[in-house]
Design a protein around this nucleic acid. Structure first.
Length: 471
RNA sequence: GCUCCGUUCGUCUAUCGGUUAGGACGCCAGGUUUUCAACCUGGAAAGACGAGUUCGAUUCUCGUACGGAGUACCA
């Protein structure tokens, strides 16, 4: 009997400093899948406390990226910056309870200490002399508020992905909660926000694994229940190095512009570093049902465009025609391609059955379906123009009457063209080239019969006649 | 430097002490064919290295190598 307290709450908490990175998109996806598969909530928090680097444009890009990927979140977007007073309040409470203290060491002093320690090859861990100082000795100067964390024993992070990670408390410093200007620090903000938002599962990149030990100190000082942690490995480029521009697309929006279907992206990204037995291709419903933290691998995975292509191709092939047309139009709008006329849309939809089996992306779909979008006159490209020599044009002229009264079904068309070829003592293959050139202006197209069926008798004959007449 | 994490075919992964180490992408060969695809059949391809525990290690422990993260009054 699930209770209110059992409800899963996950969150995605990006900084608005750029576009939605593909790695971040995967982190968001994992959180989304985990919550959605358990009837929980998936929240979005914008970590905009760094005013210098945060921009409204970046926040918008983040939202757009998530929206494209279909990762819908619950409740309002939370701005971390807007909650600074609450963060401060917690720090002050800790200070009042003696779980934090005022540190008057200046940044210069600390830096000097660290430099010296480094030069001597000793630990650069700063231990504030003010930790146990008598308040009577406090100077009248700016101070930072530091958490009085345990200096002995060890902190054990029970991580769903990494297992039990033990970190000696002696290697952790007394982290700063409030800067000397009174502003709360990120580490504090994260903990307070996660707690206040009721986050039960923190699924994030493993670059935060070490931070978890520090953050746990705040939870315990406040007497708050710890969330379940799952630190997932980052994704790398094909060469095993951190994803960067030279690996190709790093932003989620770039994949949209490359024409990958969102469902395929979700499938590929979910499968990257996570597995459910041998399942490779799955629907959102299956992913939500299957996704679990213990299926996440510990090693960073490399991004593989070939496999992305393959998975996306399967998703396109498995999609309904009208859904595909809608997505295709959306893609064209997003990339600034000219809009299609209603007639073109309709023809593309009619053609979808023979296009979707062979396309991996929307541009691919558009390319393969070019014959359905093209309008007369069909201008053959260089390659197909060669198939329209005098002899071929003569052939097309001779063929046209045979199609005039044909019943427009595949079986009959096959027979007519087959017989026609036979009568001319040639093979259908010889006929296919010119037909392709006439119908599509291309050398590589879907099946000649499929094109004829999609185009219909009138349009087919018009294109054939035109091609036969052209010089 | 110190702390922490990781390492199975080229890539993503399965395996939860005993397997001919399985699947998928990619690749190669063959088939189908009307071009390009798609599709079908088959094939090559892996436990980083070294110790230890054990009747038996890919699996458990330790070390080495390599890779990564953290070590801020950044987020």
């Amino acid at each position: 009997m699930p209770q209110m307290s059992d409800a899963v709450v996950t969150r995605f908490a990006p900084s608005p400093t750029g576009y939605l990175h593909i790695g971040g998109a995967r982190t968001a996806l994992f959180n989304w899948l985990y919550a959605r598969g358990r009837g929980g909530k998936f929240l979005l928090r914008i970590e905009d406390t760094d005013r210098a680097r945060s921009t409204p444009e970046a926040e918008k890009a983040l939202l757009q990226g998530l929206s494209w990927l279909g990762l819908d979140f619950d409740d309002e977007v939370v701005s971390q910056f807007a909650r600074a007073d609450r963060h401060r309040e917690v720090a002050l409470q800790l200070l009042a309870e003696g779980k934090a203290y005022k540190c008057f060491s200046t940044q210069d002093e600390i830096q000097a200490f660290r430099d010296a320690a480094k030069a001597e090859g000793k630990s650069t861990l700063f231990q504030s002399p003010w930790r146990d100082a008598d308040p009577a000795t406090h100077p009248d100067a700016p101070y930072a508020v530091r958490l009085k964390s345990a200096s002995e024993g060890e902190t054990i992070i029970k991580d769903e992905v990494q297992g039990e990670v033990r970190i000696k408390n002696a290697t952790l410093d007394d982290m700063i909660l409030l800067r000397s200007d009174g502003s709360p620090v990120y580490m504090l903000a994260v903990v307070v926000d996660d707690h206040d938002m009721g986050v039960t599962h923190v699924i994030r990149g493993d670059d935060h694994l070490n931070n978890a030990a520090r953050q746990m100190g705040i939870y315990t000082a406040m007497g708050w229940a710890l969330p379940v942690y799952a630190h997932i490995p980052l994704i790398f480029g094909a060469d095993g190095k951190k994803m960067s521009k030279r690996h190709g697309a790093t932003g989620a929006h770039e994949y949209q512009h490359l024409g990958y279907p969102a469902a395929g992206m979700r499938n590929y990204l979910a499968r990257l570093g996570w597995s459910h037995g041998d399942d490779e291709f799955f629907t959102d419903a299956q992913a939500k049902e299957w996704f679990d933290l213990d299926g996440i691998g510990k090693a960073p995975a490399r991004f593989d465009f070939k496999k992305l292509d393959n998975i996306c191709g399967q998703h396109i092939a498995a999609s309904e025609d009208d859904v595909l047309v809608d997505e295709l139009l959306e893609f064209m709008g997003a990339t600034g391609l000219p809009a299609l006329s209603d007639e073109q849309k309709n023809t593309v939809k009619q053609a979808m059955f023979c296009l979707k089996e062979r396309a991996k992306t929307f541009p691919d779909l558009l390319d393969k379906g070019q014959f359905a979008i093209a309008t007369r006159p069909i201008v053959p490209d260089e390659k197909s123009a060669k198939a329209l020599d005098t002899v071929s044009r003569g052939m097309l002229t001779a063929l046209t009457p045979h199609l005039q009264n044909a019943s427009w079904v595949r079986e009959d068309l096959e027979k007519i063209l087959g017989d026609f070829a036979e009568a001319r003592e040639t093979k259908f293959g010889k006929l296919a080239g010119p037909l392709r050139a006439a119908l599509a202006g291309r050398a590589a197209t879907p099946s000649v019969f499929d094109m004829m069926l999609v185009l219909g008798r009138e349009e087919t004959l018009a294109r054939l006649t035109e091609a036969a007449e052209t010089n």
